[in-house]
């Protein structure tokens, strides 16, 4: 409260923002440390070298050369051969982390420039994820409102049943069934593939549809719950008593007040937009970042795996930051500085 008495509203936002930013660094450091430890528990630099050199006729000298060239000849955390700060700084963890935190992702263990690859592959991922998000909102919000309004009706029960079923079924089933039905049996759209520009639309129809269907159940159920809670509030009852039109009540009173939980679910999914969907991209041969990460793990490419985990964490943290800001925007009762 002392802050409230001495600072303006803008100051609150600035202080809050800086405080949250200060959390970012240790979280990212922790994530990086965890990734590093987990990766090297499973893959030793020797394993990586052998994998990259092709397994056959590989000599210890070739492995040593490869490790030296890629910096994996350094100790992981402590360099006992050095003195002073170099004990810590001349290590695999430190040198790799410093580059990551300066957003210099460097080159993959296979020699590719990672930032360049990410720039190329983020667009196909976005080309699926963005329409999926928008369509889910367009469909799930009205459907959520409709079932909330028709609560207890056959429509409500039927749709709830469908939602629960869709939540219970694996997304892989939706993919395979969608490919079989629409592409193989009905022969309406290509099974898989991708193209540049507008040509991508016909390839995106099925994956987008499948992802929307796979995610719709959970979203509609969530929206229904939120809207039901809101509909039962007194201000809605008052509005009805005043004789307001139902559409006005829904869009003027229910929807704005239900925005808060809706925003939470939307913002939290934002990092996923960029990072892509692992299974969908794989089955539909979409050259996005999801398959980039999977390939890196399969190829034991630590440089890429670490970068993707880092970016994912960063985006997630930023997403949560945005959520908080959006809360304040959506609900005047919430003030950033007071927390």
């Amino acid at each position: 409260m002392a802050l409230a008495s001495t600072h303006t509203g803008d100051d609150f936002v600035t202080i809050w923002f800086l405080r949250r930013l200060a959390y970012v660094l240790p979280i990212l450091l922790g994530v990086n440390l965890l990734t590093f430890a987990l990766f090297f528990v499973i893959n030793s630099p020797d394993d990586m070298a052998r994998r990259h050199l092709g397994e056959r006729h590989v000599t210890t000298a070739a492995i040593a050369d490869w490790k030296r060239a890629h910096g994996y000849d350094r100790p992981a955390f402590i360099n006992a051969d050095r003195s002073g700060t170099a004990v810590v700084t001349d290590t695999l963890f430190f040198t790799g982390s410093v580059r990551l935190f300066s957003l210099d992702f460097g080159r993959s263990d296979g020699g590719r420039h990672i930032a360049w690859d990410i720039r190329q592959r983020m667009w196909p991922s976005l080309a699926i994820a963005l329409p999926v998000l928008i369509l889910e909102l367009i469909i799930a919000v009205p459907l959520g409102l409709a079932v909330a309004l028709l609560r207890g009706s056959t429509f409500d029960r039927g749709l709830t049943l469908l939602c629960v079923a869709s939540m219970a079924i694996s997304s892989l089933f939706f993919i395979i069934a969608g490919q079989f039905l629409f592409a193989r049996l009905l022969r309406l759209i290509p099974i898989s593939g991708f193209a540049e520009g507008w040509g991508a639309i016909k390839f995106l129809l099925l994956p987008v549809m499948v992802q929307v269907l796979a995610g719709l159940g959970a979203r509609v159920r969530w929206n229904r719950t939120v809207f039901l809670e809101e509909i039962s509030r007194e201000h809605v009852r008052t509005a009805r008593a005043k004789g307001l039109a139902e559409t006005r009540i829904l869009f003027g009173h229910v929807l704005p007040n239900a925005l808060l939980p809706l925003i939470t679910t939307i913002v939290v999914t934002l990092p996923g937009l960029f990072l892509g969907s692992l299974i969908t991209e794989s089955f539909f041969a979409i050259p996005g970042l999801g398959s980039y990460t999977i390939d890196a793990i399969q190829n034991q490419d630590f440089a890429i795996a670490r970068t993707m985990v880092f970016i994912g964490s960063l985006l997630y943290i930023l997403g949560l930051l945005l959520t908080d800001l959006a809360y304040a925007w959506a609900d005047p009762r919430i003030r950033l500085g007071s927390g």
Partner: peptide
């Protein structure tokens, strides 16, 4: 040394 040929050895 930069090309890491697997058959060098």
């Amino acid at each position: 040394p930069d090309l890491h040929s697997p058959i060098l050895g």
